Amino acid sequence: MAAIISRSTTSPSVSASSVSASSAVPSASTLPTSIKSKDSNPPTIPPTVRFTNTQDLFDIINSTTGDFLAVTNVSPNQFTEIERERDTGRKTGQKKRYRKFRFRRYNANSQVLIITIPTDLHEALHLGLYTPYLRSTTEEKWKNIGSATFRAEHGHPGGDGGEGDSTGGPRPERVGAGNWPTLVMESGHSETLPKLHKDMRWWFQASNHEVKIVILAKFDDQQHHILLEKWEEEISSPQGAITRSRAAAILQQNSVLNPVKRQSITITRDETTNPVSYNVTRGALVLGFRLLFLRDPDPQEGDFVLSIQDLQLYAENVWAELPRSD
């Protein structure tokens, strides 16, 4: 089972995330929407469509079987309209038209909207990590923010925005409108690892470094493994000799934080054993208490730890959701 241990932790990326639109993409009304993912083959590259109107976009989302969709030519006003229509559909229960989806990222400059369509595999990748964490804490201490929409107003005129797969932060520090989570989890199946890294950087920068930990969970069909990465931020240490002029420059840059990969865990499936087994490399997943709660732990509190045994069970549950070929 997941454990809480007392352990000292270190702390907190920067680099804007943007997605380049394709110069020639189909419109939402002409996109072929059947996207199959097989156990033995890499997933199809996420489709890209040009935005025409909200109704056509929702129709595409309804019929897409992958977990990502890129939409180009979405103005800030149109992004607001899509968000309003989606949320209205949720409230009125129009499930057929308003299939559940999240805004992975919206970049106002490129006018590209990346949509997450939660498949069973996609959800298992992040909920299998976040749900045990929720069980380890209490509602009095932790606010489950879920997939709320966050706007990157700091240095991002025009309305950049995004929604995490699983997010949360401490009470009372991160409760209320405009407060960013301290923990973000993002998962991907058809999304590439470099794009997940852009997502990670966006969270750190867009939140003005209010986000403290980003967990990435990637299912890699080609390597046939799950990759977990834990990212935090730190001030970069200067390299080489420090002259007087360089010292002044370092002091000026001292507020610049950079993303640091604290952990990289690979989980593979071994089908030669009976029953099937799961191999976890590089140990347990550890989330530091101080970064999560923005304070020192009390005597009965400590870091959150998903042990190797926990991660093996997690992997078994993820693989169970993998689409199989007929």
Score class of each variant (00 low, 15 high):
residue 7 R to L: 10
residue 225 H to P: 04
residue 166 S to N: 14
residue 15 S to T: 05
residue 12 P to Q: 14
residue 89 G to W: 10
residue 237 S to L: 15
residue 28 A to R: 06
residue 49 V to C: 01
residue 208 N to H: 08
residue 36 K to L: 13
residue 269 R to V: 12
residue 9 T to D: 14
residue 193 L to P: 09
residue 89 G to M: 10
residue 93 G to M: 13
residue 119 T to L: 03
residue 269 R to H: 08
residue 137 T to W: 08
residue 251 L to D: 14
residue 271 E to F: 14
residue 308 I to Y: 10
residue 188 G to S: 03
residue 298 D to S: 06
residue 284 A to W: 11
residue 312 Q to Y: 12
residue 27 S to F: 12
residue 71 V to I: 08
residue 108 A to L: 03
residue 278 Y to Q: 12
residue 101 F to C: 09
residue 279 N to M: 14
residue 8 S to G: 12
residue 201 R to G: 04
residue 298 D to H: 06
residue 223 Q to I: 13
residue 255 S to Y: 15
residue 325 S to H: 11
residue 24 A to H: 14
residue 252 Q to T: 13
residue 157 P to Y: 04
residue 191 E to N: 02
residue 266 T to Q: 14
residue 101 F to N: 07
residue 145 I to C: 06
residue 7 R to T: 03
residue 33 T to C: 02
residue 135 R to H: 10
residue 60 I to W: 07
residue 193 L to V: 07
residue 39 D to H: 15
residue 171 R to F: 09
residue 160 D to K: 00
residue 325 S to I: 13
residue 133 Y to M: 07
residue 274 N to E: 15
residue 203 W to K: 02
residue 246 R to P: 04
residue 167 T to N: 04
residue 239 Q to E: 14
residue 72 T to V: 09
residue 153 E to H: 01
residue 268 T to Y: 15
residue 21 A to R: 00
residue 80 T to N: 08
residue 222 Q to S: 13
residue 210 E to G: 11
residue 324 R to Y: 14
residue 285 L to K: 11
residue 159 G to H: 00
residue 37 S to N: 15
residue 308 I to N: 13
residue 180 W to Q: 03
residue 233 E to R: 06
residue 232 E to N: 05
residue 30 T to K: 13
residue 92 T to D: 14
residue 27 S to A: 12
residue 211 V to R: 04
residue 198 K to F: 06
residue 179 N to F: 11
